[in-house]
Design a protein around this nucleic acid. Structure first.
Length: 460
RNA sequence: UGCCGCAUAGCUCAGCGGUAGAGCAGCUGACUGUUAAUCAGCGGGUCCUAGGUUCGAAUCCUAGUGCGGCAGCCA
């Protein structure tokens, strides 16, 4: 009976099994060969034993690193250390060979930089198999978490006409461009002749649309791709990334922050529960003390700190900062890292930021100087969540938009929310890839998504 | 986008003015249980591109391209 490798490891010995997968390594001697077979279902490979005299030698020669094979045989208790069970092969067929002169993956580890060049094959490595399983489990956990709390999963548009929150440079979406001659040519200068009859873009956030849905459906969340055309070349930024954005009616900043923390802890617990072998691998090869740190963070109360308190701590510290700290300034990453890594030593929630450094839709506090915004910062990654209570008062919102030169004509529907049945509401955005980095210890965001998109790179 | 660094065999790198090296991988063989197996042998290179300096450049200089690190933008 065909079983996935993860199920084979759970099966009782002395039964017949069929395994299918890709050969990771082969060790051979005169009479016997050992093959490590992987199918992505779990971290552990299954070891296959071939007695050379029982197989056609030409077929057996094709069982090389990278080849795809099917094996049937007896699942037995392994007489040697390293695995509990193994398959004593009786039958073998080759799905696809892999020429050893050409196949780029070897038994030995390859650099992440090299693996990025062969992204179509890297899911066969230990690291990327583990990343992929964690990513999948986290995605399931996101849906489970919100479903359990009666949130609706909503789909906000990917193509949008609104420059949203000015969250970043946007990719234009147009049918007005041809490049038949190898050069870009504009078919028509007039946006009215374009597909949407006006400029359109890939979304930088589904937040504004999610707000409209929350004011009617109460609790909603989005989970989808997001696009930023910033020319940012860093280990923490992608041009295409996945974001989870819950939006809740009848919710203030405090409740928003509490949900964000509970959500993060729930996701961490889920990964600890469902991916223990993958986490052990990450701890061994990528990030020492990973599991202990995650266990701690999963249960410890997050540190809540106002922006003003953070400024005070930063000014009182002996640490030398490249950028000076003053109330009203944007925190640089050196400041954020000091707060979360040195001052507190675990995730920190900063809130009540100066109004002048935050977006127009964030709710003005009674002090008239700060807005109900919050960021969750984690060690080594920095900002992982950004959120706020939204401005639900029409007059205040209009004044804010005017001061930032935002057109009421474009955001008429957003303003309508404040005219018809407005309510306090709040939400946040969690960057999926940043969370995966945090939970796996991976150092570059390009290595936690199958195919990364960043400046000068749309291969595959 | 700014600053810094790197680019040599399939991979990871050494060589840093005198004409190409190692380890691993690959190939061939040996080996009755391996776990990144081990042992022996063999093949493998426009030294990123284009200019320049020099009797001579992988090596020095300039530009370009690509990649990486840090910063910024943020999630």
């Amino acid at each position: 009976m065909y079983k996935r490798v993860v199920d084979i490891h759970q099966s009782p010995p002395n039964t017949q099994v069929i395994a299918r997968g890709w050969v990771k390594t082969r060790r051979n001697s005169k009479e016997i060969q050992f093959v490590q077979l992987s199918d992505g279902s779990c971290f552990q490979d299954i070891q296959i034993i071939f007695q050379n005299d029982k197989f056609d030698s030409d077929t057996l020669k094709k069982v090389t690193t990278g080849a795809c094979i099917e094996v049937h045989g007896d699942l037995i208790e392994s007489p040697a250390a390293g695995q509990n069970v193994e398959i004593q092969a009786r039958g073998l067929s080759i799905y696809g060979e892999a020429d050893q002169e050409e196949y780029p993956l070897q038994k030995k580890g390859a650099s992440f930089e090299f693996l990025r060049e062969i992204a179509h094959l890297r899911c066969r490595t230990n690291t990327f198999g583990a990343v992929s399983r964690v990513r999948s489990e986290v995605s399931w956990a996101v849906h489970q978490y919100f479903r359990d709390r009666k949130f609706q999963y909503v789909h906000t548009p990917i193509i949008t006409a609104s420059d949203c929150e000015g969250a970043g440079e946007m990719f234009a979406v147009s049918t007005n461009l041809t490049h038949e001659t190898g050069q870009y040519v504009l078919k028509d200068q007039d946006p009215a002749q374009d597909f949407f009859a006006k400029p359109a873009f890939l979304t930088v956030s589904g937040q504004l649309e999610a707000e409209t849905l929350a004011l009617g459906l109460t609790n909603v969340y989005t989970f989808g791709p997001t696009f930023r055309a910033e020319n940012s070349n860093s280990a923490r930024h992608l041009a295409e990334f996945w974001m989870i954005e819950p939006e809740m009616a009848f919710c203030d900043l405090k409740q928003d922050m509490n949900l964000a923390c509970d959500f993060l802890q729930n996701l961490i617990k889920h990964v600890l529960n469902y991916c223990p072998q993958d986490l052990e691998f990450f701890q061994k090869r990528i990030e020492p003390d990973l599991i202990q740190t995650l266990e701690h963070v999963a249960h410890a109360q997050f540190e809540y700190m106002t922006y003003s308190e953070a400024i005070k701590h930063l000014k009182d510290s002996d640490e030398h900062f490249e950028y000076p700290v003053e109330w009203g300034c944007d925190l640089q990453s050196e400041h954020e890292r000091w707060l979360t890594e040195k001052k507190v030593g675990r995730p920190v929630v900063l809130y009540d930021y100066p109004k002048d450094i935050k977006a127009f839709y964030m709710r003005l506090n009674d002090d008239d100087k700060t807005v109900a915004a919050m960021d969750v910062l984690v060690p080594k990654i920095g900002e992982i969540i950004g959120g706020s209570q939204r401005e639900e008062r029409l007059d205040v919102l209009k004044a804010k938009m005017k001061s930032q030169d935002l057109s009421e004509d474009v955001y008429w529907w957003y303003l309508d929310l404040r005219r018809f049945g407005s309510a306090p509401h709040a939400g946040f955005g969690l960057g999926l890839e940043r969370f995966i980095m945090y939970v796996t210890g991976m150092k570059n965001i390009r290595d936690v998504i199958p195919y990364y998109r960043c400046p000068r790179n749309v291969d595959f």
